[in-house]
Simulated assay, not measured.
Amino acid sequence: MTGSTDVHQSLAEVLDELRTLDDPKIRAVNERHGDDHGVNLTKLRALAKRLRIQPDLSAALWVTEDTAARLLALLICRPKSFDAAALDTMVREADRPKVHDWFVNHVVKKNAHAEELRTAWMGDPDPGVAAAGWALTSDRVAKRPGDLDLAVLLDVIESEMTQAPPRLQWAMNTCLATIGIENPEFRTRAIDIGERLKVLEDYPTSPGCTSPYAPVWIAEMVRRREV
Rank of each mutant, 00 (worst) to 15 (best):
T2E: 14
D6V: 10
L11R: 11
A12C: 04
V14I: 14
L15C: 10
L15P: 00
V29C: 07
R32S: 05
H37I: 04
G38L: 02
V39T: 12
N40S: 14
A46S: 14
L47M: 15
R50Y: 05
I53P: 00
D56I: 14
S58L: 04
A60L: 08
A60G: 01
L61V: 07
T64W: 02
A68V: 05
A69H: 06
C77P: 00
P79G: 08
S81W: 05
D83Q: 04
D83V: 03
A84E: 10
L87D: 03
D88F: 00
V91W: 06
D95S: 09
P97H: 06
V99R: 00
H100N: 03
D101F: 13
W102V: 15
F103C: 08
V107N: 02
K109Q: 13
K109W: 02
H113L: 00
A114G: 01
E116K: 08
E116A: 10
L117K: 10
T119A: 13
A120M: 06
W121F: 05
A130F: 06
D149H: 11
A151V: 15
L153H: 14
V156M: 15
M161T: 02
P166H: 06
P166M: 10
C175H: 00
A177N: 06
A177Y: 01
T178I: 05
I179S: 02
N183G: 01
R187A: 01
D202C: 03
D202K: 15
Y203D: 12
P204Q: 08
P212F: 07
Y213K: 04
I218H: 05
V222P: 06
